[in-house]
Nucleic acid binder design. Sequence first.
DNA 1: CGTTTTGGTTAGCTTTGACTAATTATATAA
DNA 2: TTATATAATTAGTCAAAGCTAACCAAAACG
Lengths: 124, 124
Amino acid sequence: MEKKLTESIEDYIETIYLESQKHGKGVRITDVALELKVSKASANDAVRKLKELGYVEHERYGQIYLTETGKDRAVKVYEKHRLITEFLVKSLDVSLPNAEKDACGIEHIISEETFEKMKAYLDQ
Amino acid sequence: MEKKLTESIEDYIETIYLESQKHGKGVRITDVALELKVSKASANDAVRKLKELGYVEHERYGQIYLTETGKDRAVKVYEKHRLITEFLVKSLDVSLPNAEKDACGIEHIISEETFEKMKAYLDQ
DNA sequence: CGTTTTGGTTAGCTTTGACTAATTATATAA
DNA sequence: TTATATAATTAGTCAAAGCTAACCAAAACG
């Protein structure tokens, strides 16, 4: 069983993943800070934690890269996010911005069962 | 617009409401602590905060009573909880324990739009 | 090539929400 | 009515997650 991450750390890893996809390269502290609307100091703290957890590589003043484990982890978080958003839009006709916003919170707390059932609903 | 409460405070007010309904009388620090599985010290802190916010009445060593405002607030939180649980059960066939658990997290973060649409779904 | 701008880091502080341990009240029972 | 048990409070600690301000490194420009 995977170690549970805090919500905050899940957000950071997800953001690093999305930014690296977007630009096809390593990500900077500043990108993360801007994207999550936190100070660079906070982004820096989080990256240090992610490094300790073995999810990213990062050296002083350098770019941030996800490790294999980190990427696996990020993809899972992001897929959850995507799927919940889709569920809210398709099943309830929630507007995309609100669906995104809600998914962003729900992704961290939902049970495996509910998640699987949303998946099943969308697979029909 | 109502002042936003923290998730933790919403849980406390909801618990006080449910316990007072269950026994038809004032609630004790110990009841709250047991129900939420926190220490009595934590329950005590929370009750102090709720008192400062004007949501409960409580004097040293005494019972806790919701004020009118407190009760209104608690009912809203609880209704949200109930409705989300029902939505998960009826729309996705999630088991009651998981639906309860998920609702407990979702109730604090969901947008007004999504909530209204769940309500509409259940009203059909 | 030196200076300015941008980016990153560090130190130290704040808040929230929990905890334990020790203490003080109240209630119950011998 | 005194002793014991239960309940509540207080003081002090901790971790998470943010912040600002000050400082240091690297890059870009003139």
